[in-house]
Simulated assay, not measured.
Amino acid sequence: MAGIDIQHAHALPPPRAREAVQQVADKLVERFGVDCQWQGDALHFSRAGVDGRIALLPGAVRVQAELGFLLSAMQGPIESEIRRVLDKHFA
């Protein structure tokens, strides 16, 4: 399995950061049928071929994911898209 681990700094207050993560999660559900569930300050997501979490840290958000065999071939483009979305929501 391929792994993704991206940490992105931000200056949003915690409630606004949580709201931004929820907006990202809503898009994942809508576009890819991902199951999402909050556990404390981390949003866990999964579907066939991917398991991961988006954790809210003080001044940063961290995205970690394990990609299954088929998605591992797309690791580069997936990481690029994650970085683009983080820049958009956490600028």
Rank of each mutant, 00 (worst) to 15 (best):
M1I: 09
M1V: 06
G3W: 10
G3Q: 11
D5Y: 04
I6L: 13
Q7N: 10
Q7H: 05
H8N: 00
H8K: 08
H10A: 02
H10M: 01
A11F: 01
A11Q: 11
L12R: 05
P13M: 06
P13Q: 11
P13I: 04
R16I: 02
R16Y: 00
A17N: 03
R18H: 14
R18G: 12
E19D: 14
E19W: 08
A20Y: 03
A20H: 02
V21W: 04
Q22G: 07
Q23F: 08
A25E: 06
K27A: 13
V29T: 15
V29I: 15
E30I: 04
R31H: 13
G33A: 07
D35T: 06
Q37T: 13
W38Y: 06
W38K: 00
Q39E: 15
G40T: 04
G40A: 08
D41E: 15
D41K: 04
A42I: 02
L43G: 05
L43Y: 05
S46E: 15
S46G: 12
A48P: 00
G49C: 08
V50M: 04
V50W: 00
D51K: 08
D51N: 11
G52Q: 04
R53Y: 05
I54R: 07
I54Y: 10
I54P: 05
A55Q: 15
A55F: 10
A55N: 09
P58Y: 10
G59I: 01
G59N: 05
R62L: 10
V63Y: 11
Q64G: 06
Q64I: 08
A65Q: 07
A65K: 03
G68Y: 02
F69W: 07
F69A: 02
L70W: 14
L70K: 09
L71C: 06
L71I: 10
S72D: 12
S72N: 13
M74A: 13
Q75P: 01
G76M: 00
G76C: 03
P77N: 07
I78P: 01
I78W: 02
I78L: 13
S80P: 02
E81C: 00
E81Q: 12
I82M: 08
I82E: 05
R83Q: 13
R84D: 10
D87N: 15
D87T: 09
D87V: 02
K88H: 15
H89F: 14
F90Y: 07
F90I: 01
A91S: 14
A91H: 11
